[in-house]
Amino acid sequence: MDPLLNAVTKLVALVSPSKIEAIASRLRGTHPSDGEQNLQEVVGTPAARSALGAVMMAWRDTALTGDILAGMLLGAAHTRQQTQRDHNVELVWTGPTTPFVATRRTDQVLLDLIRQAKREVFIVSFVAYDVPSVVAALNDAIDRGVDTRILVEASLTQGGSLLVDPVATMRNAVPSARLYVWTDRPHPFTNGRVHAKVAVADSTIAFLTSANLTGHALEKNMEAGVLLTGGSTPSNLRDHMFALIETKVIRST
Rank of each mutant, 00 (worst) to 15 (best):
R28L: 01
T83V: 14
P99Y: 15
V109T: 14
Q81K: 08
P188F: 11
K10Y: 06
L111R: 12
E120D: 12
T253L: 10
A199V: 10
L110I: 15
L151R: 01
G35K: 09
T247L: 14
G215Y: 07
D165V: 05
H195C: 05
A154M: 03
N212A: 05
R171Y: 02
W182H: 00
Q84G: 07
P32H: 05
G231W: 00
N88H: 15
T204W: 05
L113A: 07
N172S: 15
N172F: 10
E219K: 15
F242C: 11
T30E: 00
K118H: 12
D130A: 07
T233P: 04
G230I: 01
R251F: 01
A24Q: 07
V174R: 00
V8Q: 02
K220S: 15
P234G: 04
N38F: 09
R119L: 13
G192F: 02
T83N: 09
T229M: 08
A102R: 15
A173V: 06
A22G: 03
L73S: 03
A128F: 08
M222D: 14
I205W: 05
P175G: 12
D140T: 13
D130R: 07
R171F: 04
F242G: 04
H31P: 02
G159I: 11
Q82D: 06
V15P: 00
G215L: 03
I250E: 02
I20C: 01
V200F: 01
R185L: 09
A102C: 13
A168T: 14
V164D: 12
R119D: 09
S133L: 05
